[in-house]
Simulated assay, not measured.
Amino acid sequence: MHVRRLGELEAEIMDRLWAWQRPATVRELVDDINRDRRVAYTTVMTVADILHRKGWLRREKAGRAWLYEPVRSREEYTAGLMRDALGDSRDRPAALLRFVEAISDEDVAALDAALRTARGEPGGPRETASRGGAA
């Protein structure tokens, strides 16, 4: 599945819903966004509907309002962007090498643990956490 980068207001809406980890109404979203900048209720309602039609949000009627919540996690969204970026490369090994050279030692360790987990090898983040270590 190709993951298109979210637009500015789409990302603001998704960021809030991911952070809140609960369904929210357009009114709640508008009120929160308006703390930083002015945005019309109808604009947020339209963008939330677009995100729903694109499959990013599910919604359920609550009285006269819709409650919106994400269908996918922030991590799934980020992973999709990373897959798409890698898929655009003509030389995937070189792209991966450049990526790994540019990330922090902490991210290299996290990537190594994720690869071990994906392969079913000991020492992945879940196993380390279950032994009382940091994930």
Rank of each mutant, 00 (worst) to 15 (best):
Ile33Lys: 05
Leu9His: 03
Arg119Ser: 09
Gly63Asn: 08
Tyr68Ser: 00
Glu121Gln: 15
Gly133Cys: 08
Trp20Val: 05
Asp15Lys: 06
Arg22Pro: 01
Glu106Ile: 06
Tyr68Cys: 00
Ser130Gln: 12
Trp20Cys: 03
Glu8Leu: 12
Arg53Gly: 02
Asp91Phe: 04
Asp88Trp: 10
Asp107Leu: 15
Pro93Cys: 06
Gln21Ser: 13
Leu67Arg: 05
Gly63Ile: 05
Arg119Met: 12
Ala94Arg: 13
Gly123Asp: 02
Ser130Arg: 14
Asp84Gly: 12
Thr46Leu: 11
Ala109Lys: 15
Ala62Gln: 11
Asp88Asn: 10
Asp105Gly: 12
Glu76Val: 04
Gln21Asp: 14
Thr128Ala: 15
Asp15Asn: 11
Thr43Glu: 02
Glu12Phe: 01
Pro122Trp: 08
Ser130Glu: 13
Asp32Pro: 00
Arg59Trp: 03
Leu115Arg: 15
Ala65Thr: 07
Arg126Lys: 14
Gly87Thr: 08
Ser104Tyr: 03
Trp66Asp: 04
Arg27Leu: 12
Leu6Ser: 03
Asp91Pro: 00
Ser104Gly: 05
Met82Phe: 13
His2Glu: 11
Arg74Phe: 11
Gly124Gln: 05
Glu127Leu: 11
Gly80Pro: 01
Glu28Cys: 03
Gly124Val: 04
Ala48Gln: 00
Gln21Phe: 06
Asn34Cys: 14
Arg22Cys: 09
Leu67Pro: 00
Ile50Ala: 10
Arg16Ile: 06
Val44Cys: 03
Pro93Trp: 02
His52Ala: 11
Ala19Leu: 12
Arg126Gln: 14
His2Lys: 13
Ala65Arg: 09
Ala79Phe: 10
Ala40Leu: 10
Asp31Trp: 12
Asp84Val: 02
Arg5Phe: 07
Pro23Tyr: 01
Thr43Lys: 04
Ala114Val: 04
Leu81Tyr: 02
Val26Leu: 07
Ala129Gln: 09
Ala40Glu: 14
Arg92Met: 11
Leu96Met: 13
Gly63Phe: 07
Asp32Asn: 08
Glu60Ser: 09
Asp32Arg: 10
Thr42Phe: 10
Leu67Glu: 02
